[in-house]
Design a protein around this nucleic acid. Structure first.
Lengths: 242, 242
DNA sequence: TATAAGCTCTCACGTTACGTGAAAGTCAAC
DNA sequence: GTTGACTTTCACGTAACGTGAGAGCTTATA
């Protein structure tokens, strides 16, 4: 297939296909005399995969790393895509609820809390990248580990996003599966960026969150009562993972 | 609220808020002595609206135009957001079907057509921009109207997207509501970019699509039988709109 | 066989939406 | 008064293309 035919079939521009060729993401065969590109069926299958990852927020650089990984398996990737699309659809459902609540508030002439205004909004770092990395492993981590509390902005943002997610759950049960899943992200984050935390240490840290007022104050910025909630969730997490 | 507090509440960066201030999209009040920004509750409501539009693919420039329009109404915008979120969720559903079909094809060891591989993929120009423009009107059109067939790339892309959407429907009934809705986009496109088409002229054009082999060949690039399908849809559209 | 329209190529500048780091000022707790 | 955290502006960098130019290739037509 010629470049214009592919562009029309898929609904992307010729420039996009050229760009993907330039960066080595999708390399069609070329007529050596004229330089014209020809896309095979397997090129198109690969393009489908690329566009799935792109739709899920991966950068082209990441996509290239993933699909060039020796462990990369298309079937497994498709299954992961499926899961991620379901997740994204749920995220839209949550956004829909926020829109509905905002409409109700406006029509009813009352105010929403600022926190509720942004429920379901999620501009965090692509949450699927960690999962993709686990599957098609990255020998090196993208962000160099830094000294305690000297983490860079990207890590700071990741941290903030974990806090925000926990803040959204804090009205619920800290022992719920949802809360335990979210607090595990915090556990993983700490292990990745700082020292190795045992479940016991994690419990201890959790207790400090409510005992030390500075910790409590910092964390409660993300939502009143979040420190208490996290503390209980971390204690429970420790119990379950000893 | 301070800039860092807003950033954490919403899950965006301080740099993003600075950028929005710089471009005049979201202008919080400022302490005249220190230059510090303070975000009010209505600033946060506006930020919510901005992020809704952004989630739906609008550029910051467009968002600025929309929210600064004298006719802009937040309640109406929220209702439109709701509709668009539902549309996007349906698009995810279609993508899910494509993923499922791709998985099935791989596990069953058979091939999907190239066309089916990209069903549900939609990288068209933001389809909601026209709707937003209709509501909060743009005195000038972004793309200058050009002479027949001398349209620019953006219009060419819009045209291609309409064709692709119709191609996806061409196995069905050209008289179905879905088909009629899609062919109306084509009708609107022609009226916007070329001359004023009456429903009768539109029917005549449709007939030409199958009578003139060059037309048929061009259109069928997007899918075999598309010219015939469009022709029938256009005739029906004309009948309904005389 | 020449011509013309459409398509292809590469090149290179432009755009958008921030990220990132530096340098300097402000704030609030100790 | 000091210090750490936060704020400001500035400016260069990045990613992912869009866009137009100039030149070559392809295919249909006269």
């Amino acid at each position: 297939m010629k470049v214009n035919e592919v562009a029309k079939l898929v609904g992307i521009s010729v420039r996009t296909l050229h760009h993907y060729d330039e960066i080595g993401l999708l390399r069609p065969s070329k007529n050596p005399y004229t330089g014209y590109r020809t896309y095979s069926d397997s090129d198109l299958t690969m393009l489908q995969q690329i566009l799935f990852f792109k739709e899920l927020g991966f950068s082209l650089k990441k996509i290239k790393e993933i699909i060039n990984s020796p462990e990369y398996d298309q079937l497994e990737a498709l299954k992961m895509h499926r899961k991620m699309l379901v997740d994204k659809r749920e995220k839209f459902d949550l956004m829909l609820q926020t829109v509905d609540q905002t409409i109700e508030a406006k029509e009813g002439g009352f105010e929403m809390s600022n926190q509720d205004k942004f429920k379901g909004f999620d501009f965090s770092e692509n949450p699927y990248e960690d999962e993709a990395r686990e599957r098609w492993g990255d020998a090196k981590v993208d962000e160099a580990k830094e000294n305690a509390m000297g983490i860079n902005d990207a890590e700071q943002k990741r941290m903030n996003d974990i806090y925000r997610k926990l803040a959204e759950l804090r009205q619920g049960d800290p022992k719920s599966d949802e809360a335990q899943t979210a607090i595990k992200e915090w556990y993983d984050f700490l292990n990745k960026n700082f020292t190795t935390y045992t479940p016991e240490m994690f419990q201890g840290l959790g207790m400090m969150y409510v005992q030390d007022e500075r910790f409590q104050k910092n964390i409660d910025q993300f939502g009143e009562g979040l420190a208490q909630f996290m503390s209980e969730a971390m204690v429970e997490f420790g119990e379950r993972n000893k």
